[in-house]
Amino acid sequence: MFCEQIGDPSASIPLAQLIKTASLAEANASEEDKIKAMMTQSCHEYDPINYMKKPLGPPPLSHTCFHCGGLGHYKKNCPENRDKNFESVPRIKKSTGIPMSFMMEVKDPSTKGAMLTNSGKYAIPTINAEAYSRGKKEKPPFLPEEPSSSSSDDSIPEELLCPICKDIMTDAVLIPCCGNSYCDECIRTALLESEEHTCPTCHQTDVSPDALIANKFLRQ
């Protein structure tokens, strides 16, 4: 091919070879092929085939297992996995990103929606406390429905709930593979706990936690 180009100066470089050319400006090719080659080169490093799966080393001694609550091992290596009757220790979420003015302190950590604050106390978002206190309103059967009004809607919109913890999203982030939103802590933990960094919704593998995008609309 090189000899043919020397013999025929007008011969242009094929697109497959042009993509591997370092200096596109001096290459003998059409402007359209140069643009295609430039776009391919600029996107090459973002191709999923170039993602490197970081091997997980041994956890630090202070790491808490999300299954048994013990220290020094991951959930997949938990010794309690052999016991099918073992009940996982309930996880307490942290109130990261929620101002304390929006929180209400509670004494019992088992309270629905309770979170651990930076001061070591337990609190629940005020909006959650109001929703839990009202509860579900049951209507007698076979009665005409009352006209709905925006002020009487007490339910939390489904798009504000995290698909993993089923609670209001904290530090909402988007996952690039399927575009769903989760709590930042929930989706990072789910990706790191899975052996192949698998998305819990679309089940795509090799999804890097660093690829998560902040969902500013949901956060506001």
Rank of each mutant, 00 (worst) to 15 (best):
K34M: 01
M100Q: 08
H67E: 02
K36H: 11
K53E: 13
M39P: 03
L61D: 14
S95E: 03
E80P: 02
N28T: 11
M115F: 05
M100D: 10
M52V: 10
H63E: 09
G72L: 01
K54G: 07
N81E: 06
M104E: 13
K76F: 07
A29C: 04
N50I: 03
Y132H: 14
Y46F: 14
Q41N: 06
N77C: 09
K36C: 11
P90C: 05
M100I: 11
G97Q: 00
K34W: 03
A123S: 14
F66Q: 07
G70F: 00
K107M: 10
Q41T: 07
V89G: 01
A25M: 05
L71Q: 03
N128Y: 06
P58V: 08
K94D: 02
F66L: 09
P60R: 06
M38E: 13
L71P: 00
E32H: 04
P59L: 07
A123M: 10
N85E: 04
Y122E: 07
K84S: 06
C43G: 11
D108Y: 12
E80G: 02
S42C: 08
K112N: 13
P48A: 08
P79Q: 06
D83Q: 03
K54V: 14
G72C: 01
T111F: 12
M103L: 12
T126H: 05
S119H: 12
I124F: 04
H67N: 09
D108V: 12
K34F: 02
Q41A: 05
E32T: 06
H73K: 05
P55E: 15
K36Y: 11
K76Q: 15
N118H: 06
A123E: 10
K107D: 15
A27T: 06
P79W: 01
L61W: 06
A37W: 02
Y74A: 09
C43T: 14
G97F: 00
M38K: 13
G113S: 08
A27N: 04
K54S: 09
E80Y: 05
S95I: 00
A114N: 12
N50Q: 11
S95Q: 01
G57D: 12
S119V: 15
S110R: 15
L56F: 07
N118G: 09
E130H: 11
S133V: 12
P48Q: 07
P109L: 11
N77G: 10
C78Q: 07
M103Y: 03
E80D: 07
G69Q: 02
P125R: 06
G57H: 10
A131N: 13
M103C: 04
M38Q: 13
A25W: 07
H67C: 02
Y132S: 13
R91T: 08
D47F: 06
C43S: 15
I35T: 12
P58S: 12
K137C: 11
S101N: 01
V89S: 02
F102T: 00
K94V: 00
G135S: 11
K121H: 15
D83F: 05
M39V: 15
R91H: 03
P60S: 08
A123I: 10
M39Q: 14
I98M: 01
H63Y: 14
I124A: 05
H67K: 04
Y51E: 10
I124L: 14
D108S: 10
G135N: 09
S133F: 13
P109W: 08
